[in-house]
Computed example of a mutant assay.
Amino acid sequence: MTIKAVNEVVAGVKLAKDVHTPLGGLLLQKGKVLLPRDLEVLKAFMVDQVAVESVEADSTRIPTVKSAGQKPSLIFTGSQQGDGTEEAPVRKDLPLHEEYDKTMILVKNCYQSAITGELRMYEVRNQLDNLLKHQQDYHILKFIPRMTNRHDYRYHSAVLCALSSYKLAQWVGLPQKDWMQVAFAGLLHDIGNAKIDPIVLNKPSKLTEEENEEVRQHTTYGYQILKNVAAVNEGVRLAALQHHEKVDGSGYPLRLEGNKIHIYAKIVAVTDIFHAMTLDKFYRNAQSPYRVLEQIQLEAFGKLDPKIVQTFIHKVTALHSGTRVRLSNGSSGEIVFTDSQHPTRPMVSVQGEIINLVQQRQLYIEEVIS
């Protein structure tokens, strides 16, 4: 082990000890093979020196550069298992998109048949199961449906809420027996909208009080539609009824307080808000997912379950260093560090310059590119 000044450290050496920020947060882990962007991070945090393993002790890891004309990147000989290096992702056509499209079409049919109360739940369950088999390929901030239009907003929202609620149920520690039912809750939470006048639902201007009252009825209609559906449990029905309730008792339709709101409804409330704001609607363009997460974080104070909100935000923003993003000023760069205290405002490297979004509040991440 050798203590070296950061200015003297070169890419390719391995850390012998953890490196922490001045406030004590973990910056880089022991065993991490330093990449060029890691050196930028160390300098940005004004770290003076680090403990590294001697080059002689790890001579098999001498970095080489790809052939001329290509962007330089580190290539290491020997095994890279467990040493902190990152392999380039392999791009492929995902079956997830195919199953997503099938589920979306089925949900659309369900909305049309819900008016008569005839839901094809056996078919829905089989298709949802096929979709969730590929949920490991679903990242909430990265996934983009292949075909979208404003007319299908509610059906996209339903399928995305199913996928996201399924993940969130796992993240908050619900038993496995609940995961599929929570996915059903996400898929069917807005099914009551099938009985609302579409002219009112899609009205581009502010609703009148009477129209607002009509829209709020979708929660009660949803519970009634699902009441006699044997394939779902009571939590799914209550999610349809309660997903607009607030923990401070200010929601609707029953003005329930936190301890009276079903856990499924609390989970769906978070994913519903996220996808409602990040999808294009008739009357509003999609918003930046990172800006939406910040708004959801504000909603956590008295409106949404704070534990569920914090879990959701920290999990979806846990992107690997090197994830490419586009900022609100149009520039593109790579995430190099995410502070757990400010998960929606990481440090981004743009053309060699480190931009700290915590300090530069006028900027935000507009889109996750890859």
Rank of each mutant, 00 (worst) to 15 (best):
Ala44Glu: 07
Phe45Pro: 03
Asp48Glu: 15
Asp48Gln: 11
Gln49Asp: 14
Val50Arg: 01
Ala51Gln: 10
Ala51Ile: 04
Val52Pro: 01
Asp58Gly: 09
Ile62Arg: 10
Gly69Ile: 07
Ser73Glu: 15
Ser73Trp: 10
Asp83Arg: 13
Gly84Arg: 05
Glu86Trp: 08
Glu86Tyr: 13
Glu87Leu: 13
Ala88Cys: 09
Ala88Glu: 14
Asp93Gly: 03
Asp93Trp: 09
Asp101Thr: 05
Lys102Tyr: 00
Lys102Val: 01
Thr103Glu: 02
Ile105Glu: 13
Leu106Ala: 13
Lys108Ile: 02
Lys108Leu: 08
Tyr111Phe: 15
Ile115Gly: 06
Thr116Ser: 11
Tyr122His: 12
Tyr122Val: 11
Val124Met: 15
Asn126Ala: 11
Gln127Leu: 07
Leu128Gly: 02
Leu131Arg: 00
Lys133Pro: 01
His134Asn: 12
His134Asp: 02
His134Ala: 02
His134Cys: 05
Asp137Asn: 13
Asp137Thr: 06
His139Ala: 05
Phe143Gly: 00
Arg146Leu: 04
Met147Ala: 07
Arg150His: 02
Arg150Phe: 02
Asp152Met: 01
Tyr153Met: 00
Tyr153Trp: 00
Arg154Thr: 03
Ser164Tyr: 00
Gln170Asp: 11
Gln170Ile: 08
Val172Glu: 09
Gln176Asn: 09
Lys177Asn: 14
Lys177Tyr: 11
Trp179Leu: 14
Met180Glu: 12
Gln181Ala: 06
Phe184Trp: 10
Ala185Cys: 09
